[in-house]
Amino acid sequence: MSWLDEPVTTLALCWRLERRDGVGIGLTAHDRDLVIDGNIYRASPGMVPSAIKRGDGADPSSMDVSGALTSAAIRERDLLAGRWDGARVAIFAVDWTDTGRRIALGEGTIGAVETADGNFTAELKGVAAVLDAPVCEETSPECRAELGDRRCRVAMAGRRRFARVTAAEDETVTLDVAEPVANGWGGGRLRWFGGANSGLEDAIVASSGAMVTLRTVPRFVPAPGDRVEVIEGCDKSLATCAARFGNAVNFRGEPYLPGIDLLTRYPGA
């Protein structure tokens, strides 16, 4: 590319970030905002990437990017709450005098995030990092599928309900609707659509009537009236799969396979 050989460089690094909840922002290391493909990339001169190394091998690639928490789009509370976990990131270099000239440098997802003294460091995992995942599953007495996914195949229509928070204390949240069956929301998920936790999601450990117990305390204090979506769950046992969902044919576990926990599974046998 001839523009890279010019005596005066006009190179600027850019980042395009897209969160899992659909929020997307653009940042650039240039000293002023750039408009690229109709999107505004805000100037963030403090954004500094680690060395970018590209190759044609199969080794998983990753890099780090650090910067100051000065942008209203990237705040410390959002990083710590996990809003940016798993966000998609595309990094490229562009000619700031002609944004149509650019070079793709890499893409991936945000992994571990650290904050300290008003600065943050985020690990960017390349697409080849998926090669670190296990090739096959381990056996387990419990089902390894998630309720409603393509392996489970239970229809989720009618198993999701919108509700509003009426009270909250630590991990316990009280809603204005009741569960469909006893502990029907246990093992499910609660998605926040309003209030300070909007866009976040929490796992439900157990439910009783209109009360749900979350796995962890919500990142921010819920307020009465906050809108949520509560999704029915499953305890992943064969008995529940057969009796409650009539779905034993799709059960993805091995409850009768002897294992190293055989003696503890049946005490006194």
Score class of each variant (00 low, 15 high):
Cys136Pro: 00
Ala163Arg: 03
Thr166Arg: 11
Pro60Val: 04
Asp56Thr: 09
Thr121Gly: 07
Ala242Phe: 02
Arg265Gly: 08
Pro49Val: 02
Trp3Pro: 04
Val65Asn: 04
Phe193Val: 01
Thr28Glu: 05
Gly158Asn: 02
Asp202Ser: 13
Arg164Asp: 00
Pro7Asn: 05
Asp5Ala: 14
Ala145Tyr: 14
Ala239His: 07
Asp117His: 09
Gly186Glu: 09
Ala116Val: 12
Asp176Phe: 10
Val65Phe: 10
Ser66Thr: 15
Gly199Val: 06
Ser44Val: 12
Ala112Asp: 14
Ala29Gly: 12
Glu229Thr: 07
Glu137Thr: 13
Ala129Glu: 15
Gly106Glu: 05
Phe245Leu: 08
Asp235His: 03
Ile25Gly: 01
Met63Gln: 03
Asp202Met: 02
Ala167Ser: 15
Trp3Gly: 03
Ala93Pro: 03
Val127Trp: 11
Ser66Gln: 15
Pro180Gln: 08
Arg227Thr: 09
Gly187Cys: 05
Ala104Cys: 01
Gly188Gln: 04
Gly100Asn: 14
Asp85Val: 07
Ile52Met: 08
Leu262Ser: 14
Asp170Asn: 12
Pro45Tyr: 06
Val127Ala: 12
Gly187Val: 09
Gly26Thr: 07
Asp117Thr: 02
Ala29Val: 03
Val89Phe: 05
Ile91Pro: 02
Pro49Gln: 06
Gly126Phe: 03
Phe220Cys: 01
Gly246Lys: 08
Ile74Arg: 08
Pro134His: 04
Gly259Ser: 13
Ala167Glu: 11
Gly195Tyr: 01
Gly225Thr: 01
Ala128Tyr: 05
Val205Cys: 04
Gly246Met: 06
Ala116Lys: 14
Ala51Ile: 10
Val228Arg: 02
Glu138Lys: 13
Arg75Val: 13
Gly209Tyr: 03
Ser44Met: 12
Thr166Gln: 11
Leu238Tyr: 10
Arg164Met: 04
Phe193Glu: 11
Asp85Glu: 06
Glu18Gln: 12
Leu131Cys: 00
Val217Ala: 14
Val94Gln: 09
Arg161Thr: 10
Asp33Trp: 07
Asp5His: 11
Ser61Val: 12
Val48Gly: 00
Leu79Tyr: 09
Val154Arg: 07
Lys53Thr: 12
Glu254Thr: 15
Leu147Asp: 08
Gly209Asp: 01
Thr139Cys: 06
Val249Asp: 11
Gly82Leu: 06
His30Met: 00
Glu232Val: 13
Ala128Ile: 03
Arg160His: 11
Trp15Val: 06
Met63Leu: 14
Gly259Asp: 15
Leu124Ser: 08
Cys136Ala: 15
Leu11Cys: 03
Ser44Phe: 09
Thr28Ala: 01
Asp98Lys: 10
Leu80Gly: 01
Gly259His: 08
Arg219Val: 09
Ile25Glu: 08
